[in-house]
């Protein structure tokens, strides 16, 4: 029987891993809500976020938590470009084309990154990397606490943006009903670009946090991106609270799986969960019945 401090420690690893899934899944949920588009390459956008932060950090050496915001902007713009010149072109030609396009993007973004930056593992050293909060029996690294704090901060800002600003409200209106939003004078194409931009920016934040916590290389994103889809299905399509709870849950389940059953099951358990949820409640834990 493991000691209780060990279990708390695993809980913290799981919670922070979950924060990364939450940021990914909330972004994806937004894109899906507004555009109904399926982007399996979301993980590659996360990886670009990690690399953007890495290079800015490498050349300037400033605090990576500050760089995270630069990375969000840069990658957000990149997301807009992908939307405008990629997904927009196949919009309405069938979901399969979107899936295949995103598979192509996975190959391109991942291998171009390997080509440009090699596949050596990289690390971003936060100034707090060797500092821990000493709770007697247990040490929690500052970076983990900051990761949780930043995730909360980003989610609250997003919530305020969506509920308190006109643009945010227009975005939500588009997500609920395209035609009605158009009639009210919302430029739907702008909303597409905006949602893709915000989703990509959230992925960049996720990538930066992931890169501070663990070493990474261009292969970091593929499984994470697809995992984020399982999160939004488990949580319920379109449900932001569902994505948050399912994301945290997945992080916890994965880390406890490593602890109790071994690393081989880490990724598999997510899909086992997905299949169970789809069999028992196909609309997800918090999804609405259609």
């Amino acid at each position: 029987m493991a000691e209780i401090t060990t279990l708390i420690q695993i809980f913290i690893w799981g919670l922070t891993a979950g924060c990364i899934y939450v940021l990914m899944a909330v972004g994806l949920n937004m894109i899906f809500g507004v555009m109904k588009v399926v982007n399996f390459a979301h993980g590659e956008i996360m990886m670009l976020g990690a690399f953007t932060s890495f290079w800015v950090y490498n050349y300037t050496g400033i605090n990576p938590y500050f760089i995270m915001f630069i990375s969000m902007i840069v990658v957000g713009i990149f997301g807009v470009i992908i939307e405008r010149y990629g997904f927009r072109k196949v919009l309405g030609t069938g979901k399969l084309n979107e899936i295949f396009l995103s598979l192509g993007l996975i190959y391109i973004i991942q291998n171009l990154s390997v080509k440009l930056w090699t596949d050596d593992i990289r690390k971003i050293n936060s100034p707090f990397s060797s500092m821990t909060l000493d709770l007697g029996m247990l040490n929690i690294t500052y970076d983990r606490l900051i990761a949780i704090g930043f995730t909360a901060l980003i989610l609250i800002s997003l919530y305020l943006f969506l509920t308190k600003t006109d643009v945010g409200r227009a975005l939500r209106a588009t997500s609920q009903n395209h035609e009605a939003a158009m009639l009210m004078g919302v430029n739907v194409n702008h909303m597409y670009m905006l949602s893709f931009g915000i989703g990509s920016a959230l992925a960049a934040a996720a990538g930066t946090i992931a890169a501070i916590l663990t070493p990474f290389n261009p292969y970091m994103g593929t499984i994470s991106g697809i995992m984020a889809f399982t999160v939004i299905i488990i949580g319920g399509l379109g449900s932001i609270p569902g994505a948050i709870i399912a994301g945290l849950m997945l992080g916890l389940v994965q880390n406890f799986t490593i602890f109790y059953f071994g690393g081989a099951w880490k990724d598999a358990v997510a899909f086992v969960l997905l299949i169970i949820v789809l069999i028992i409640k196909p609309t997800g834990l918090f999804g609405e019945e259609h």
């Binding site: 399926v38 399996f40 299905i233 081989a264 990724d267 899909f271 997905l274």
Partner: peptide
Amino acid sequence: KEWFLGLVTFGFAIIMVAIVNE
């Protein structure tokens, strides 16, 4: 449908890796 099916089949291959590994 479509991408739900895509995810489940994708995941199934990942599950198979774990089963065979273990």
